[in-house]
Design a protein around this nucleic acid. Sequence first.
DNA 1: ACGGATCTGTCGGATATGCAACACATTCGA
DNA 2: TCGAATGTGTTGCATATCCGACAGATCCGT
Lengths: 202, 202
Amino acid sequence: MTELKTDPRIVRTRKLIMDAFIELSSQKEFKDITVKDITTKAMINRATFYYHFQDIYDLLEKALSEVLLINLNYEKYENAALDEETIADIFLAVTKFQQSLSTRCHRGYEDTIARIIREQLEVIFYKMLLREHGLKDDSALKLAAGMLSWGIYGASVKWRQNSELGPEEFIKKAVPYLLHGVSKSFNGVHSCTSVGGKDGRI
Amino acid sequence: MTELKTDPRIVRTRKLIMDAFIELSSQKEFKDITVKDITTKAMINRATFYYHFQDIYDLLEKALSEVLLINLNYEKYENAALDEETIADIFLAVTKFQQSLSTRCHRGYEDTIARIIREQLEVIFYKMLLREHGLKDDSALKLAAGMLSWGIYGASVKWRQNSELGPEEFIKKAVPYLLHGVSKSFNGVHSCTSVGGKDGRI
DNA sequence: ACGGATCTGTCGGATATGCAACACATTCGA
DNA sequence: TCGAATGTGTTGCATATCCGACAGATCCGT
């Protein structure tokens, strides 16, 4: 829907840059990676880099977003119900993504990464909520999506601090709280028509 | 020497095309590979393909040449003496290259491949001869290089027909004939100053 | 034998990329 | 403290690449 096709050169060049950056990230820390390093490995001109990205931090954000989105396997959730199982799946994808990052060294950029994860989650949750509730109260949906994303990310932080349980068991214990908490406030304040109780859907 | 630098886009695009072609060659026969297949996998426009290559046969030649050159490890021979050991090395590289091709299906293009191999060998032999003899009789050097390349390729054909011996033993039996045959005619006709006998050098 | 489908090779006009140079900031050793 | 060296963003002009369309070739089912 409303897809305006982008120039193939742009797709190709972005991919070259992203791949080069991810490869470099596995070799040295982010703070030691220069734009020249990336463009050399990507076989493009340095000026072209700035045609696509604001700066190297912009690249970091977009690269991480992309990798996370792939990890999140977005098409899978596109039409899934926002139930316990889906949330558990997403939580697993997030923890898996964070573990894949921990090997590379991004010390000092935890906040950026956290924000990216939350933003991505928020977009996904918003789309799912929108599909289930329509847009009669958009700001409420956005609020719910935001809170869910913070909740999931917070859960992943909690889990890393206290990893006695496996991620599966951990999220299964946490998810009822998340779902009913969000569900209650959402239904209570805005009297949404959908029934929050039946199968755990919001 | 006299290197005019080529546009990086050209290098990059050629590499994309070559890599795509080599990848496709491992998946289906040459006759089933279309230009569209290649350009799609290489993420370039079809018109761009024709900017770089005459047609798909031109690509075949250049791709094979490149792969063979890499197999031949050209820098290694750049300054090596044209003695028995070097010739054996080159022979091994050729047989190894042909075996790497046999898995992919290039039926019907044996002649093309054979010609490419001979041409590449001829270039290498010519450079080595030129370095050892100077250019006082250029046409004679070219003749000798050509005969050597035919000889090596012929030896590889013979070896494939009769592979009771390993390639190492096989070429060691054949190389004295090659060396002295070429050496004699070359020295005899043109009275070259270098001594053909001493250590087997031409 | 016929038409549809696919592939080939080519063209002119639009666009992304390359290049060289620039000013500015940061780092680092003398 | 001072340069020298390196990295960052930006700019104008040159060029490789993209697009869409075209005519002809080849293949294939009916």
